[in-house]
Simulated scan of single mutants.
Amino acid sequence: MFAAYSFFYKDEDKSQIEDMQTIKVKKPIPTTWVMEDSTDKMTDKKYYYLSNKAVNAETGKPADAGFTIGCSYFGGLNGVFTSDTPIKTKDITKDGVMGEYSIRFDEKPMEYGSSELTSLNRVVVLSSEHLQQIENSKRVLIRITTGVDNYRTFEINSEGGSNLFKTIKEFCMKKAKENKAL
């Protein structure tokens, strides 16, 4: 009876250990580039933009944050990183509210910067250099200081966006030419 008892309970312990190991190995939800469009209700013009959702780098859970990249008036790209939590205000200049962030592309060293903040301090305006690096990267990490002096780090899987970047750049150039013709 002791042998049977030992055998059954050892199997039960093994299955519990295997279940716990399976839980620990879960990976963050993958993120991907999406090209979306919207139509202006006043002018009926169609606009395209790229977006890519972020995950919370510490927890691996989805975050209501990510990149949005669209056309500038002159044919280039404008981009922003939108946070799910307010970003701490660093300073106020003639251009408006400024906030600090850190950004890292792939395995390159982390860069520090400050940017104009918009939309209740949840949006960081990206530079053209950042947009070029995002286009050619596989992984981007962005850390912000939140409005309550905590840090939040976001991870974005930026791999596979080069074809969509090419498409949106062509669209933006076409729109810029149309704007100049008017």
Score class of each variant (00 low, 15 high):
T89Y: 04
T43D: 14
K46D: 03
T146H: 12
I168D: 06
S158W: 02
Y112R: 04
Q132N: 09
R122I: 05
R104D: 01
T82L: 03
G96S: 08
T39L: 07
K53C: 03
P30D: 03
K41P: 13
Y49K: 12
T118P: 13
G99T: 10
K138I: 02
S15L: 01
T43G: 05
N121R: 14
E178P: 00
R104V: 01
C71T: 14
R152V: 02
G60T: 04
V34L: 12
M110A: 10
S158K: 06
W33Y: 12
F171L: 05
E100F: 12
D91P: 02
G60H: 04
S137I: 03
K26E: 15
P109G: 06
N56M: 02
G113C: 05
E18I: 00
Y9M: 11
M1G: 08
F171V: 13
T59E: 02
V34T: 15
L50F: 05
P62Y: 08
G161K: 02
G66P: 15
I103H: 03
P28T: 06
G113P: 07
G160F: 05
L141R: 03
S114V: 09
T93A: 11
I92Q: 14
E116A: 10
Q16H: 13
K90F: 14
I23D: 04
K177V: 02
A3P: 03
V25G: 07
F105P: 00
N163D: 15
R139G: 01
D40F: 07
Y5S: 09
I134K: 02
L164A: 09
E135R: 12
L117E: 11
Q132D: 08
K27F: 07
T153Y: 01
S137F: 04
G99W: 06
D95G: 14
Y9E: 04
Y112V: 06
E100A: 14
T59N: 07
N78M: 12
S38T: 15
Q133S: 13
D64A: 05
T93V: 11
K175N: 09
S162L: 09
N136I: 08
V34A: 10
N56F: 00
K169E: 07
P86N: 06
K180A: 07
Y73M: 10
L182I: 07
K175E: 13
G70I: 04
I142W: 01
F105S: 13
K10E: 03
S137K: 11
I156V: 14
P30H: 05
W33N: 08
N157H: 10
V80N: 14
S6W: 10
A181N: 12
V97E: 11
A4H: 11
I142F: 07
P62S: 10
T145C: 07
T118F: 09
K108N: 12
S83C: 04
Y151M: 07
V124L: 15
A4F: 15
V25N: 10
V148L: 05
I142A: 05
V148F: 14
N78C: 08
L117A: 04
V124A: 10
W33C: 06
V124C: 09
D64M: 08
S114T: 11
R139D: 06
